[in-house]
Design a protein around this nucleic acid. Structure first.
Length: 505
RNA sequence: GUCCCCGUCGUCUAGCCCGGCCUAGGACAUCGCCCUUUCACGGCGGUAACACGGGUUCAAAUCCCGUCGGGGACGCCA
């Protein structure tokens, strides 16, 4: 148990692609734990895989984490007392520790070639034996090994795995024990001099005085190998917490083919960061009682408990994320939503980048009207079609409206409405309501029979927002200079009637 | 093949460690009703789960063993 001093945790991603949903969840749990315990959250970049690592991914990664609301106390950009925070910048330390292990007889040089090892592995598999290293080079006399190495023979460094079961404590799973027979002496430094991941992490975590290693459960069988390194070096073994895998709807590990799997994807979809954070926290963790779902950041920090994290894998449920997103959209400061919504409309070419005050106000009205009913903000441009897109012929043909046109009173209502409405120039809520009341009396219709046809005439669909919100926005919108013209009520009625007559013929 | 991890409604989960309060709770989704001169939102209600088989016990979702199913690891990858 590491209970002395302050908690130190770390998130150590490889900058080899977009920040994945599974990885942010790991980052989030580390962060929540650190913030609650008033500990330190370290960001360390594992960029030893030079082939795949790219700086732009690192930049993206930091930006995505910040967007979600995660911050770190030490990291490549902010520095800290345990610098450097990029693995590629700290190669020397790894070699020094390895030299010490050799000197102490806890590690040895291995002269086996990759081909030899591959052959042994295949043979073991064929004989249904454990495909682990035989320990052949363990027997080589150290002085002899030193001579061969000095003579230029390439050698990797292997750690002697102790001959007793290796056990460690996992906060999520309890005590875990691996028989040493299944491990085999691990290479810790390649013949080229580069350290192996399972060795490098240990050095890094120990150097940085990490007290709790919280990571994905794909590392669980790496853990005994790492514990062996800690023990050989006489270093304090940290506490572990292995988080379960996040699955797609088909119960397969969440991957690209499941669609949106990166933080960036969700940001572009118009998922609010607090919704994503709340959802991710609920994937694998639940408060005691398990009867609360809404957890804003501050509440999460207060309630989060590593010991309550579930060990079983979880299927990522987009619907529940959307539900939370709707909640936070409604909850959020109006101005923020107006601004964000306008950005999505702008990206869709419905608004221009520079907006004067009138347009800004109008756009805010549009977003205000539509936003509470969308799952994600990127649905806004489509929903705004009731303003920007009006095609009478399409509305008449649409199967969605077939039922409306099948109603016996439809012609009567449409004609009565058109007759009155086309005479009116600038509509107001009052004038519109007056018209509605008149045709209600004239046609003797009400409810659906009255409203559905009128709605189809005006927005091409029988469902949509209330007229007293809609009419003013249509009218003011029609008078603004926008990239896509918003047709006025009268324009709509006129166009509809032309199409309606054409239909009749 | 061997080792490790996991297994409660369709999904996320509470309960499990410390057996009885579990007639198994909440949420998403779904279905129904109400609200609404439309649709949604919202409110109310319903359907729906302890993987299977053995033990232990007066009593098991909870403890033990086994089976089955899913995932991971066994690299001079991370």
């Amino acid at each position: 148990m590491v209970e002395t001093g302050k908690i130190r945790v770390r998130f150590a991603p490889s900058p080899t692609g977009q920040l994945h949903i599974g990885n942010v969840r790991t980052a989030l749990f580390n962060w929540l734990f650190a913030r609650q315990k008033r500990g330190t959250f370290v960001l360390r970049i594992e960029d030893t895989d030079v082939e795949r690592s790219e700086v732009r991914y690192e930049t993206q990664l930091l930006a995505d984490m910040k967007w979600l609301g995660l911050d770190w106390d030490e990291g490549p950009d902010v520095g800290g007392p345990y610098s450097p925070y990029r693995q590629s910048e700290k190669m020397d330390g790894y070699r020094a520790y390895a030299a010490r292990l050799i000197r102490e007889g806890k590690a040895y040089y291995c002269f086996c070639t990759s081909e030899e090892l591959e052959r042994e592995r295949e043979q073991a598999l064929a004989e249904q034996r454990q495909p682990i290293y035989s320990g052949k080079c363990r027997k080589i006399d150290p002085a002899e090994a030193e001579r061969r190495r000095a003579a230029g023979e390439p050698a990797a460094i292997r750690l002697k795995i102790p001959e007793h079961p290796i056990q460690f404590h996992d906060i999520v799973r309890g005590d875990v024990e691996f028989p040493h027979e299944v491990i085999g002496d691990q290479i810790i430094v390649r013949s080229g001099g580069m350290p192996i991941y399972n060795y490098a992490v240990v050095i890094d975590d120990a150097d940085m005085e990490i007290t709790h290693v919280i990571r994905g459960d794909d590392h669980i069988s790496n853990t005994p190998k790492q514990v062996a390194v800690y023990e050989a070096l006489g270093l304090q073994v940290p506490e572990f917490a292995h988080l379960s895998t996040i699955l797609g709807p088909d119960r397969e590990r969440l991957s690209k083919r499941h669609g949106a799997t990166s933080v960036a994807n969700y940001r572009e979809m118009g998922i609010l960061p607090e919704a994503l954070m709340n959802y991710l926290a609920l994937l694998g963790w639940a408060p005691s009682g398990g009867d609360r779902e809404i957890f804003p950041q501050a509440e999460l920090i207060k309630e989060f408990d590593l010991a309550r994290v579930t060990p079983s894998p979880a299927v990522f449920d987009t619907e529940k994320l959307y539900w939370l997103n709707r909640h936070y959209i409604k909850q959020s400061a109006r101005q923020r939503i107006h601004r964000m919504g306008a950005e999505f409309l702008e990206r869709a070419g419905l608004l221009s980048a520079e907006m004067d005050e009138q347009v800004t106000t109008w756009a805010a009205g549009v977003v205000e009207l539509l936003a509470p009913y969308v799952d994600r903000l990127d649905q806004l441009p489509d929903r705004a079609g009731i303003f920007f897109r009006f095609d009478a012929a399409e509305a008449i043909l649409s199967p969605e409206n077939a039922e409306v046109f099948a109603s016996p009173a439809v012609t009567k209502v449409i004609e009565a409405f058109a007759w009155r409405a086309s005479a009116e120039a600038g509509w107001t809520v009052e004038s519109f309501n007056a018209i509605m009341n008149q045709i209600k009396m004239e046609t003797g219709t009400k409810g659906k029979d009255l409203f559905h046809p009128v709605r189809v005439v005006l927005i091409g669909s029988h469902s949509g927002p209330a007229f007293d919100k809609l009419i003013p926005l249509i009218e003011t919108g029609s008078r603004l200079a926008l990239p896509v013209h918003v047709k006025s009520g009268r324009e709509r009625v006129t166009e509809f009637m032309e199409a309606w007559k054409r239909r009749a013929n």
